[in-house]
């Protein structure tokens, strides 16, 4: 007891001087960041060449806590920022880490277009079914029946099924996990880091302060237990069938893992084919 020891192995991946972070007790975002640090280690990527881009939200704060070149952009626009960054500097591995509201509500248009173009970025979406940062408003992921401050009588809009949205928009890698499935998350993130093209990982995570409390679902730990008990892993499941329902069964797994030329590749191929040696790429 009390022996000086090596610092936590995730430390080199963190801006330790910025700890403690702003996330609430039992918030799942930190757990996923922990997994991400391990995925970075597993991927063996040179960290100087990994850049992280976030939008705005509780999850949007991830960029600021990681010891990488990091960009905390505007609400919803992490993906187009990342697109410019990646195209200007193709040797970077560019990761977008943001919330469900950020990526899918205000940023939804960018999400589908980046997937369509197959921009070589990895998009990690922390889905807590709610707008955390602004105090618990309804999101395009909020399940029907769940309440939020702006859906006080329960959400009556059909939410997006994110893996289906990602796949049908053109993503080459699509997976869903919960914050309980830490080893799966870490491996999936490492997979995505290695993969070329638009990769998407949805991670369900507790927001005990807002979503769980407002819906009387207990605290973070209670939610993690729920994830443990009510998740089934079905790799390769048809993404049409992986809808989420309020406190329903959760289908997890790696749903999509295909090859398709990236935006950069199709661009270069086209110019080379048409312009031949006039192409200055």
């Amino acid at each position: 007891m009390g022996v000086m020891v090596p610092f936590n192995p995730v430390e080199p991946f963190l801006r330790s001087e910025r700890m403690p972070h702003i996330w609430c007790s039992g918030c799942g975002i930190g757990t996923t960041v922990n997994c991400f640090a391990r995925a970075l280690a597993e991927s063996k990527l040179p960290l100087d060449k990994v850049a992280i881009v976030s939008g705005i939200g509780c999850t949007g704060r991830v960029a600021g806590y990681l010891n990488l070149d990091s960009f905390h952009t505007t609400h919803g626009r992490a993906i187009p920022f990342a697109t410019g960054l990646k195209l200007a500097n193709p040797e970077l591995t560019v990761v977008v880490y943001s919330g469900d509201g950020d990526l899918i509500a205000i940023g939804g248009n960018h999400f589908i277009h980046a997937a369509r173009r197959n921009v070589d970025i990895k998009v990690i979406c922390i889905n807590n079914f709610i707008y955390g940062m602004t105090g618990g408003q309804v999101a395009p992921t909020t399940p029907v029946g769940a309440t939020a401050t702006t859906a006080p009588y329960g959400c009556f809009e059909r939410p997006f099924n994110l893996p289906y949205l990602a796949e049908s928009s053109g993503a080459v890698y699509v997976a869903r996990w919960t914050a309980y499935h830490v080893r799966y998350i870490a491996h999936s993130m490492a997979d995505a880091l290695r993969k070329k093209g638009f990769s998407f990982i949805e991670i369900l995570a507790p927001c005990p302060t807002l979503y769980q409390r407002r819906n009387k679902l207990g605290d973070g730990l209670e939610t993690m237990r729920y994830y443990k008990q009510h998740s089934v892993i079905r790799h390769g499941a048809n993404t049409r069938d992986v809808n989420l329902h309020f406190q329903g069964e959760i289908t997890l797994g790696k749903f999509v893992d295909i090859e398709r030329p990236t935006l950069q590749q199709t661009m270069e191929q086209r110019f080379r084919q048409v312009l031949r040696d006039r192409y200055a790429g």
Binding site: V53, T73, T74, F81, T83, G84, L85, A88, N109, H110
Partner: peptide
Amino acid sequence: MEDELASSIAILGAAWGG
């Protein structure tokens, strides 16, 4: 890009990319 929000921040990403 898909809209002006995208183009006006894609250039900022590109600028940070060098």
